[in-house]
Design a protein around this nucleic acid. Structure first.
Lengths: 81, 81, 81, 81
DNA sequence: TCAGATAAAATCGCGC
DNA sequence: GCGCGATTTTATCTGA
């Protein structure tokens, strides 16, 4: 692909928007790390908290998965969802 | 780790703050994906844009060193630069 | 890092061993695709077989996870594993 | 999909062949990781070796095209090659 | 052809 | 301080 002269600005715009969003994302990641640090200072064990968070997330993910499997079975039976 | 009865609320608070921040982080990640999608629709190549973003993020001294090592290996393998 | 003249052979050797192993790995991947093709020819639905395989793999993974969590709880209770 | 009673054995056979092949594939992947480990112990840089392997695998025409696109983007961004 | 899923790779944090 | 394990990110592949 070639870039016409007036396309340069578009490329730069995309790159800068991505960089801006990645900064925000990194900032959130830092905040998360900070909360784990606070929790540790309060006497909690960060790895265990991590497991709690993962477990809570998986519970909702599992719900979604079960519904997906149900849909597959419905389809296998030729029944409408 | 032990948790005194009146610490439960603290633990819950930490967990919820983390979950909230992770939601925001995930939202930014979605936004980034969206921008790559827009760029693609505009005729740009997302993997190459990724390389540009990575290069801009990387320290120039480190970049130079990496490229030097790569050149050395290429030469050792008898491959053209 | 620099590569002395007599190190070139070592680099080449590593690269060739990796390439050889990757070929074998790719060959296995092709074999797997072929089995899915056979299954399809026999009237089975490949995506569904994929789900079966994933499910069987996940079952053992889940077992391991449950044991890990149990170990964590043991530790949290100050009990020996 | 429906499965006649006497088709169960066939399905099981397909599943087990796939699982066996996937085990072999995973074993090769482990071997590859091991070689990278050896290379590192010998003073080589694994990520750079990866780049060499990838470059050798890639079609030279395609490689040239990718580098051309990258150069165009770099120029459009006003970045040095 | 493109989005979604899967697997590979790089990065980061922990423990030794 | 380094290797190891886990997480996150990137690339490949399958299916619509």
């Amino acid at each position: 692909m070639e870039i016409g002269n007036n396309e340069e600005g578009h490329l730069r715009s995309f790159v800068e928007r991505i960089e801006s969003l990645e900064e925000e994302k990194a900032a959130r990641a830092d905040d998360i790390k900070e909360v784990y640090g606070e929790a540790k200072s309060s006497g909690f064990d960060p790895p265990t908290i991590r497991k709690i968070v993962a477990r809570r997330k998986k519970d909702s993910a599992k719900l979604a998965e079960e519904e997906a499997i149900f849909a597959i079975y419905l389809k296998a039976m030729g029944m409408a969802a």
